[in-house]
């Protein structure tokens, strides 16, 4: 039973391996990202309404949900494309300002991204973000530091952001060994 007064203790559940696909429309110059649960990444060019989508790239990743160990409440994370740690690349960025402020107390800022294009895709809501933050803080055993998760909306100019979301880059390529 779901209990409104429950002090939730989150666990990760429904972990599914997937591909995160990045496509680009040559007509409207928009970028789109989405998850594919297929065994192989779909890479066909296709038309969808106004758009002519072409694959720019893909990486392996996972999708998951969070569930309360005590009351069983399930919070779906379908809108989460990935988490990115702010590494402070753009001085005027609101996320970076927040990071500079919180860095002193060893609280680290992560951005929860939804899928592209941000203006046409449902992004994570406040509850999802706060549950994500609670989950990661509950999982951390350290008492000396904390995690703060913010929404991707805080980043005003995405093209200036040099952070990378956590995913499995280059798993299928034969990238040369570095030495």
């Amino acid at each position: 039973m779901q209990d409104e007064s429950c002090k939730h203790l989150w666990k990760i559940t429904n972990i599914k391996p997937c591909f995160i696909i990045n496509e680009f429309c040559y007509k409207c110059k928009k970028n789109t990202t989405y998850f594919s649960l297929e065994e192989r990444p779909p890479i066909e060019r296709y038309q969808e309404g106004e758009h002519f989508w072409n694959t720019l790239g893909y990486d392996q990743s996972i999708r998951f949900d969070l569930q309360c160990k005590k009351c069983g409440k399930l919070v779906k994370m379908e809108e989460l494309a990935g988490l990115m740690m702010c590494t402070g690349c753009e001085d005027n960025c609101k996320v970076y300002s927040l990071m500079k402020e919180l860095e002193k107390e060893r609280t680290w800022v992560y951005v929860a991204f939804g899928f592209l294009p941000f203006d046409e895709t449902k992004q994570l809501d406040k509850e999802q973000i706060s549950v994500l933050e609670d989950y990661f803080n509950q999982r951390r055993k350290s008492s000396t530091s904390k995690i703060k998760i913010v929404s991707g909306d805080l980043i005003e100019n995405f093209s200036l952001c040099y952070g990378n979301i956590i995913k499995d880059v280059d798993m299928l390529s034969s990238k040369p060994p570095e030495n």
Binding site: D59, Y162, K167, P176
Partner: peptide
């Protein structure tokens, strides 16, 4: 653009 999004692909030449 791909790099900004975290997409990189290596080359196996070495």
């Amino acid at each position: 653009e791909q790099r900004a999004l975290g997409f990189g692909a290596g080359m196996g030449l070495p």
